[in-house]
Amino acid sequence: MTTIPATKVIPYRTNREPGFLARMLEHLMHPVDEIIIPLQRALGTRRMAYFFVLPNLLIFGIFILLPMALNFYYSFTGSTALQPSERPWVGTDNFSRLLNCGDYGNPVTCDEDIFWRAVWNTGGFVFFQVSGMIVFALVTALALNRQIKGRGFFRSVFFYPVLLSPVVVGLIWKWILQRDGVLNAGIVALGGEQMNFLVDPNWSRFWVIVVSIWAQMGFYTLILLAGLQSIPHEYYEAAHIDGADTWNRFRFVTFPLLMPTMLVVVVLSLIRAVQVFDQAFALTGGGPGTATTYIVQYIYNTGFTSTSREAGLAAAASVVLGGALLILTVAQLKLGRRTEANH
């Protein structure tokens, strides 16, 4: 057994006479020292780090790791019971049911057709939302990077929706978009006809994407703005002297140097888009039909709102979604490292 030498404790010294607050603090900390100093002697300085991270580790373990492990266990069990001990082991049945499909492009042929509808809906949402988000966030960041009047005000305006609760955003837009909503009132006032924005499947999908971009764009705009401001001004001056016009300055200076930031934005928005739920749910409830039902809503419906409360099936879908998110996260890390290395 290795004996750890007692750590030499260096007392706090100062040339100045300690003030009242400092003396109070010293008195207060004295009992703590009584615990910490012997503990440090026993554990050694290096191992004390574990002691300090222990509270956070406990919280992380109880509220993140334990539920993850339970979810993984649930995905191999069946029945409606909530207590793990009361749930019978069903092996990979839940995964088979989830993934068994005659034709993945035609959900009707799948055992869990709603899951596959949700997968396709999520795929479409991710593609259009992330593409739209990046284009709009980039354009906005470029505009806000210019010396325009009221720049600070506009930055706040674009960031403001990020501060709103997703459910509040969903409800506000629902009032705007429903048949007797504000938008239709405007259309009718201009002589147009009422539109079924939340009843037609394609319109519903479109608006879920638009609302999502509106609500989140400010966050990504801010990241891109920081990226734009980190590009040295001298490069633009050099390009200007070389005769590059605005488009070429963007193409050959801004875009390549913004790529590392752009990658971060792409991966972050991808991960967030795959998790789409609350805002869309508040806006459309997943309808019409299942047109705006996404994977997380499928998990929620299956585990919580279906009468049979198929927690095992919902947990299996969570594991599949977790796998997809893990791939995206690893891709982000690898891309990030590669970009850093290239830099």
Binding site: G78, T80, V108, S308, E310
Partner: peptide, 26 residues
């Protein structure tokens, strides 16, 4: 919403109920 035919919906309702009862009985 035009996602399913009535035939498909009838088959799906039957399957949903059968699966749910099997899960409860599990």
């Amino acid at each position: 919403a035009g996602e399913l035919s009535l035939d498909d919906a009838i088959a799906a309702i039957q399957k949903d109920v059968d699966d749910a009862i099997a899960n409860v009985n599990a």
